[in-house]
């Protein structure tokens, strides 16, 4: 990995004694070692370290999707209903973001953009929340530069795709709906807001489901900028004990699989729950 220019080690530190000491009493290392071998015991010993990486993976997925929605939804509306320059701009940026590998985008946001300017306000916002809520059991973590860069990259790329999801969904709503809304005296904006968007949002669930798993899997690419998410931590582990490479990656893959699988099932459920009765989603 020497070619990856890792400039900043992120907020997440390397495994500490403390992490190793945490055991939950269900299984002991020896039991695992006896039944599955020393390499799985190594995985077991570091389970909290890997689960910590999983938490970062989940956090990164959520922040990225949120950013993607905040930028992608308006972009989708502009593409569907906007005119002239605004639409052309949204389209061109979309093509740019969808045509470039996420890896390159991420390197860009990390090395080229002045992340420091973004980092300050984000940290201030989090501190502000911390201050408002008072001392909570969840102390606000220090946000690393890599995390912000990865969120920006994944979020903007996701916005480009989400805009397409929403544009498609908006376009799929029958034109008669708009006419009917206008006929009862709604303005164009009101019609979009109260009639078109509620229908379109429901129809965009399957596309959004896809986007969710894509972003989740692509958080692994934050490896390239040294963010200590699941894959990076796995890599750190197996460079320590090279005999356990397969075991570590398989365990990480299992975690990814559980995440994507459960998200998909959950979103299936959400989709059914909010579906308009009689309309197949």
């Amino acid at each position: 990995m020497d070619f990856v220019p890792v400039l900043a080690e992120t907020a997440t530190a390397l495994p500490t004694e403390e992490v190793f000491l945490v055991t939950d009493g269900l299984l002991t290392e020896e039991q695992v070692a006896d039944s599955l071998g020393e390499d799985w015991a190594f995985v077991y010993r570091n389970r909290w370290y890997l689960l910590g990486g999983t938490v970062i993976t989940i956090a990164l997925t959520i922040t990225s999707l949120l950013l993607g929605f905040l930028a992608g939804f308006p972009a989708g509306v502009i593409e569907a209903y906007g005119g002239g320059y605004s639409r052309a701009f949204v389209r061109k940026s979309g093509v740019l973001l969808r045509g470039t590998p996420i890896l390159v985008i991420m390197i860009f946001t990390f090395f080229v953009l002045p992340i420091g300017y973004v980092l300050g306000p984000v940290q201030a916002l989090l501190d502000g929340i911390d201050y408002l809520l008072g001392p909570t059991p969840f102390t606000v973590p220090d946000v690393g530069e890599a995390f912000v860069a990865a969120t920006l990259a994944l979020g903007l790329r996701s916005a480009a795709y989400q805009s397409q999801i929403f544009r498609g969904a908006l376009g799929s709503v029958d034109e008669g709906q708009m006419e009917a809304a206008r006929s009862i005296g709604m303005s164009r904006l009101e019609a979009i807001r109260h009639v078109i968007v509620p229908q379109a949002l429901r129809r965009s669930v399957p596309g959004f489901q896809n986007e969710f798993t894509i972003v989740l899997k692509d958080t692994s690419i934050a490896f390239a900028i040294g963010l200590g998410e699941l894959l990076k931590r796995s890599n750190d582990l197996f460079t320590q004990q090279t005999t356990a490479i397969l075991e570590v990656i398989l365990f990480a893959s299992l975690l990814y699989f559980v995440l994507t699988f459960s998200t998909n099932r959950t979103l299936d459920y959400v989709s059914n729950y909010y579906a308009v009765p009689g309309e197949s989603s």
């Binding site: 894959l231 890599n235 490479i245 990656i249 398989l250």
Partner: peptide, 20 residues
């Protein structure tokens, strides 16, 4: 298909390159 689609490509490459 579900197993392949449920895990990141990078992890798959690692399995093939480092793991096996």
């Amino acid at each position: 298909t579900e197993l392949i689609r449920g895990t990141p490509l990078l992890a798959q490459l690692f399995v093939l390159y480092y793991g096996l």
